[in-house]
Design a protein around this nucleic acid. Structure first.
Lengths: 191, 191
DNA sequence: AGCGCTATCTACCAAACGGTAGATAAATTA
DNA sequence: TAATTTATCTACCGTTTGGTAGATAGCGCT
């Protein structure tokens, strides 16, 4: 039972998890620059100092949020990744991302807002997003290699459309994200 | 000639223009939340107080930047807009935007960073971007109406791809923005 | 030259920020 | 129960922020 005082003591692993989850949602709404240390803390019912016991600085928290998101994301598609690299697999993986993202609007928004902020080379997550994009495109290119005449351009096309569709869906929830994607994929992967 | 003292006095219209131009570039790099009033002022060689003589608040400056950008943008394509609404015109207009944006990377970045920040309903430019997107899509839809079987979905496709391509181009300048666009348009506008 | 207008400056403020130091209280162990 | 550990708190600091008040100086006019 919750103690009489307002103070809630949790084991570190649990508390870290709670903080990361709350921080993720806050950043998704307002970006990293838009959320203060105190706001992060208050969202978990604690104070700045309490939060800083678990993360050395506000910037540290951001990096932890990104890394944790990567873990979860990778875990969710790792089974699909086993098959040989071919376009059908590529499409299946991307459709999986679309379905997954559809149910996690705030996470998509987190990445959208953050990656835009991080276009500034001085942003703490700039390097993170730069390497992430490069690696993602290289992987996709491998999957298209044996099939598409121009796998490089095709990879750019696919990622551009997916990014842009997500962005427009965030701006206007009326857009039918999965339907637009499947229609595009039908054309893109047509023989 | 510049006076001996550090003080530079300009007619209001001229000074406003200078401020808007500098602010535009700063926001393009670091977003609106990322630039302080003092930084805006310093970029024009003046102080906060001096700047606030021309714009009542920092937020006021942001709105002025957006409105001014719209004026310039519209003026640059207004000649192309005369012809009847048909897909060929639509493509020409959009290719025009691509060419134009290619030479104004920082302006594209301004819109990208700002529109992502403005996904937050509490952002001062949220309403601006919401209506802007709606109107843009409606206009594009009119141009595709007589030709495409699903003008609504087609408009979303086009804008999504363009937005996404721009975003990826900002992240990685190695991407051949106009070539990717023309290849996509060839397929999209094919008979 | 001298006057008036106002663009700009210096100096300041209250609030909000990220972060630190030391006190306090909740679990764990002896 | 008493001692230990450490998660959390209160209180504070130095800096930065957006914005204000009043002084100063450049320009146009007569």
């Amino acid at each position: 039972m919750t103690p009489a005082s307002g103070r809630r003591r949790l084991p570190p692993a649990e508390r870290r998890e709670e903080i990361l989850k709350a921080a993720t949602e806050l950043i998704a709404v307002s970006g990293f620059k838009g959320v203060t240390l105190e706001a992060f803390a208050a969202a978990c019912g604690m104070t700045k100092a309490g939060l800083l016991h678990h993360f050395r600085s506000r910037e540290d928290l951001l990096i932890a949020v990104l890394e944790r998101r990567d873990e979860l994301d990778l875990a969710s598609v790792v089974d699909t990744l086993e098959p040989a690299p071919d376009p059908a697999t590529a499409r299946a993986v991307m459709s999986g991302f679309v379905r997954r993202n559809l149910e996690q609007r705030s996470l998509v928004q987190l990445y959208t807002v953050l990656s835009a902020e991080a276009l500034d080379p001085a942003h703490p997550a700039h390097a993170y997003f730069a390497t992430r994009l490069r690696e993602g495109r290289a992987m996709l290119e491998r999957y298209l290699l044996a099939w598409h005449p121009r796998p490089g351009e095709a990879a750019v096309d696919l990622l551009a459309f997916l990014d842009g569709l997500q962005l427009n869906w965030l701006r206007d929830a009326g857009i039918d994200f999965p339907a637009q994607w499947e229609a595009f994929a039908d054309r893109f992967f047509a023989p």
